[in-house]
Design a protein around this nucleic acid. Structure first.
Lengths: 156, 156
DNA sequence: AAAATAGCCTACTGTTTATGTCAAGTATTC
DNA sequence: GAATACTTGACATAAACAGTAGGCTATTTT
């Protein structure tokens, strides 16, 4: 459940590759495609979106390619995925582009909203900089704080 | 991005309805369907899965219907969704049913794994009991703990 | 025993979304 | 002006989703 599309996956991997390359040397689509094993034509679409969103900039002609528009640590994964897949929206009910018809009766509305917020919070915390440093693990873990709230619940 | 299928959504809503009904009175599919505005035939599929997974039990014949197999507070949302949608698997790369071919080169592997763990952690924390009590909000919020870890990153 | 109630099962189908490919451009550098 | 590289939009295929349909089995009531 909750699978990401390949666009999002490839997009993050492409951004990683661009971030990793020599900071001032533009990376061609072809290079990215080879290193990350994705077709050139498909990458064009993905990078086009990222460019129009201002996350990368491109240089045409010989010696051209793609560069990050900002420093790696200023680009959270949430930004990349947001461009390629739209906002986190567990259900249409909590999709900012749609809306909930039965919000009053919808007991689960709050649940999905909160889950979305958790996900978005996490993805905003991890940046391309973290990815470069291989720093995705324990420092970000927050699960230990989550404790079954069953005590409060006996009053029900 | 990361949308849940309707099976998962309807399933949670159906479970909520069963949990809400008088604890000892079985709820018929028809009743659930009316209250949650889902087709009877579709609900049959969903409840069949939940029954085979042991989350609800059914009583046939007149006066029959569905009952929870355990107390609401013993049924986390993760259990319901797990049955209807399979395990959380942001990418095929971290899907327990598949596997990662390029785990060594896959820089994002850890990222998706960690995100999945966060989601699963959250969904395991919230139970049908919480849903009944309307208790999904702030007590479970953990985002305040998440702080940009950019300081540690300068050492790279 | 028959009728009514209610769950059980599984095959089928239309629609949408995802995942790409292809072809014809445009801009830049050497 | 030739080579390089990005840009754009149309199109093709396949998989997943969402839901329907129809017949079957079990249980209770009359």
């Amino acid at each position: 459940m909750l699978r990401l599309s390949t666009k999002g996956q490839y997009g993050v991997r492409a951004m990683f590759e661009i971030a990793r390359g020599y900071p001032d040397r533009p990376l061609t689509i072809k290079e990215i495609a080879e290193r990350q094993d994705v077709s050139v034509a498909y990458l064009e679409q993905i990078l086009g979106k990222l460019r129009r969103a201002g996350l990368v900039r491109s240089i045409r002609g010989p010696g051209g390619g793609y560069l990050l528009a900002r420093e790696p640590r200023e680009i959270p994964i949430a930004a990349v995925l947001g461009v390629l897949e739209g906002p986190v929206a567990i259900t249409s009910c909590v999709d900012p582009r749609e809306g909930c018809i039965r919000i009053e009766h919808c007991v689960t509305h709050l649940l999905w909203k909160e889950l979305g917020a958790q996900i978005e919070g996490f993805l905003n915390t991890i940046t391309l900089g973290n990815l470069l440093a291989g720093d995705v693990g324990s420092p970000h873990k927050v699960r230990t704080v989550l404790k079954r709230a069953s005590k409060d619940q006996n009053s029900q």
